[in-house]
Nucleic acid binder design. Structure first.
Lengths: 246, 246
DNA sequence: AAATATTGTGTGTATTTTACACATTAAATT
DNA sequence: AATTTAATGTGTAAAATACACACAATATTT
């Protein structure tokens, strides 16, 4: 739930308590989506947050979200938020978890479906119509409004897990990227350092990177080669699974 | 959504379409939980299903579920179903995915939160008050009612993934089990054959199995040793993560 | 006592992971 | 133009892990 909900739908929500008693026998519940939108810039993992304007959460930041409307698919609702806020259409989006704590929203019961989204922070236009929408460094994300800290933590952990097993990360990079950029991305997301030679060996061994025959521009040192990810080849050859390991 | 919903709440649901128009401005939606309850018996992975009594789904099987009530946590709702149907309290339960297809339920829009549950099929009492509740072999599960086939498939895939990375499987076995039983479980869930010696080596190397100093009874061959899983040790030593691999 | 069926164990090979150092290149500086 | 700087690009040896595979031991059944 986010400012969007708060602004666009606050009146509706405020009437929930009244209406809930009327519809109690139908067990109907307000449903929202909240999007944890990740970006990558200046070698840091970022998340897009908006300032809450609920008094209760004054000065706190919250995720982007909105109520799901009656005739809207869940994924469609998340895409709608993304489009509204970033102007982007084809973005990576994954449903992560549904949060239904009874008092997670002060205006009444709202169950929210959390989505994790990855966007290319360069290639988008933020619709900052209220000047309250900002990219935050991951490590500064604390004490969000509502239960959004929990939602954020869940989505961030999911991202850490999935980026190791699936080629998600490329959604955060420019279409053409250097291996250094790729490694910086992994190091930022996993919050770790990796050996450069072994990292390269790993990715070259996978054989999903296409050498574009181009090199970086405007770097103050020897420029690296540029690559793009070969999704077609990946889809054909991807691993079935690994083995027992815990 | 299941027979429970159908029977206990069908009348409520049938009024949804009317009421939805009244509460449209609140965007309220009916919410349910559906549980994919797995068991393991006779070396086969089983799932607990109930026969649908909706005319539309005559003779089809469906998952166990019910509407979430207004003041009920999501997990609590799933636990309620499990308790009702299996009599079991402390069971493995994991939220998997939320399904919100607009026409997934014939009576109106119902968004459902799917849970995956693992129970020890020996240690429970089925509340088969309607004789329509049965354990089905996994490989016979086709053409379920509603969108339950999709929900089942999603939960089964999730189980296959998670059993390789976490010690879930023991929830399906008796407290004391032989390595053969454990291997049979893995082979059933992953639908594969494994080398017996390497399987043993793997688990002994993890060092999470406690040798109980007992042996199997009533087997028509040399009895194997019995073990239990050392959850305490696992919690302390479990892997942080693995590495990039896709 | 023999036959049967399953448990329990070890070793060599292939593969994967890890640790680690030096030559190369382009830009910036002198 | 020569030097410095800062990053790219590459290879190899050791260690750890995964895999393939065969035979002796034990309890039950006949």
């Amino acid at each position: 739930m986010s400012i969007t909900l708060e602004r666009n739908n606050l009146n509706k929500i405020k009437t929930l308590k009244v209406i809930q008693s009327e519809v109690k026998n139908t067990n109907q519940i307000a449903l929202s989506v909240d999007c944890v939108i990740f970006g990558f810039d200046e070698n840091k993992l970022k998340v897009l947050l908006i300032r809450s304007d609920l008094k209760k959460f004054q000065s706190k930041w919250s995720l982007l979200g909105d109520l799901i409307s009656e005739n809207e698919e869940l994924d469609a609702s998340a895409y709608r938020i993304l489009k509204q806020r970033t102007g982007l259409n084809d973005v990576y989006l994954e449903q992560v978890h549904t949060f239904g704590g009874l008092s997670r929203h002060p205006a009444g019961r709202v169950v929210t479906v959390a989505y994790c989204s990855l966007i290319n922070i360069q290639h988008h236009q933020l619709n900052i119509f209220d000047n309250e929408l900002h990219w935050h460094d991951i490590d500064n994300v604390t004490d969000l409004a509502f239960d959004h800290q929990q939602i954020f933590d869940t989505c961030y952990k999911r991202l850490q897990k999935r980026i190791q097993e699936h080629p998600l990360g490329f959604n955060l990079l420019p279409k053409k990227f250097s291996l250094r950029e790729l490694q910086n991305l992994y190091e930022a997301i996993l919050d770790t350092k990796m050996d450069r030679r072994n990292f390269r060996k790993k990715f070259f061994a996978m054989d999903f990177l296409i050498d574009l025959g181009e090199i970086e521009k405007d770097v103050p040192h020897r420029p690296g080669k540029l690559y793009k990810f070969n999704y077609g080849k990946y889809e054909k050859k991807k691993k079935k699974w690994v083995g027992i390991d815990f």
